[in-house]
Design a binder for these strands. Sequence first.
DNA 1: GCGCCAATAGCATAAACGGGTGATTTCAAA
DNA 2: TTTGAAATCACCCGTTTATGCTATTGGCGC
Lengths: 215, 215
Amino acid sequence: MEDLIRVIVFEDNRDLREGMTFLLQATPGLTLAGAFSDCRDLPTQIPALQPDVVLMDIDMPGITGIEATPLLKALRPACQVLMLTVFEDEDKIFQAIRNGASGYLLKRTPPGEIIKAIFDVHRGGSPMTASVARKVLHFFQEPAKTAPNDYQLSARELDILKGLVKGFSYKLIADEFFISVDTVRSHIRHIYDKLQVNSKTEAVLKAIREKLVLE
Amino acid sequence: MEDLIRVIVFEDNRDLREGMTFLLQATPGLTLAGAFSDCRDLPTQIPALQPDVVLMDIDMPGITGIEATPLLKALRPACQVLMLTVFEDEDKIFQAIRNGASGYLLKRTPPGEIIKAIFDVHRGGSPMTASVARKVLHFFQEPAKTAPNDYQLSARELDILKGLVKGFSYKLIADEFFISVDTVRSHIRHIYDKLQVNSKTEAVLKAIREKLVLE
DNA sequence: GCGCCAATAGCATAAACGGGTGATTTCAAA
DNA sequence: TTTGAAATCACCCGTTTATGCTATTGGCGC
């Protein structure tokens, strides 16, 4: 019977790696399945060592931890990847998450919390350093930041634009608002002027990309 | 000089609220600015008490914590809202985040961590219970899930579709790939068949919404 | 009251588009 | 080897769009 969580460490700094292995070996409930300075032998190591949790550094020779993560998840989907790195720029955080990382800790995290995080991530949680989490949350909040309608579209023009974004023809839009097709044409001319485009498709693209209309 | 973090608690359960106030009062570095069972008097309380951090329950009589959060942030944008609730369904989590919450803890979090979270959130972090964080991360990873869109478009058809999404006319697309306009037309007919649409705009909309092309 | 502007509408013309039909070539799978 | 899907091109015909010009009406502000 095997209740131990099998952990692998990928970390190119030797001192850190050895510190981690020492820490893991000293923790009941965990077992160190391996510790390596790079991810070059991932395809053989993963099937052989069958880790439950991987502590992944980002900056390593050869393959970065961010690149290695999807490879690892492809080899062993149930394995949880916990990034453990000094980087806290949004790019790296989001890349890691998109590539399948389930947790993201900065290296300055105290040992006790790293251990706790290993259990957390294995239990289905996503431990994250608070400052990293803030960057993730900003992503959800920033839609508000997106520039509002400063093209000075009138209310009616917005109506028409919404019609275009629904994929309607001039005729359908005319029917929708009980106005003539010529009027629709007229509004659309003004919309094109204001948005600086000259086709329906461009107008629709601009409307969506700049969120001039709610989809 | 005032280095204390001013904290307000909104929590309708009296025992919990009193437990929290006791905990906060006993913690150096924090000062309890108020504790209330609902958010009805938010507009007067916030300016009067000037909190730095608010512990916010969700399920309260009158206004829910989720509804109260944007009001509070409007009154005092610098104030950090830390949700403290039993709910861990995605809807509530995302609503809270969109409305301006900066942290999200489940009530089963031990007191010591709640205290730590208050300092974290005040320092600009976003403490989150690991299981909550996992739900947030899933949001970023799920684009993969949104990919049952197999319309069997050929490579060339995808090229053409990308051209449409760039807002190009048939003629421009023809020039881009050094083929005739009639060929473009022909490809587009097939694209329309496969996507089940019948206009450029609809095709572009479908392509974007279902991420058939990378924008 | 006067002027401005959004909303409405019409007409005209040229370009772009959508749909029908059909054809040739190439390449890979059956 | 046959079959079939992709990619290429062509012609036709009617519809939709893009653009230019013009014009009336009803509100709003000054």
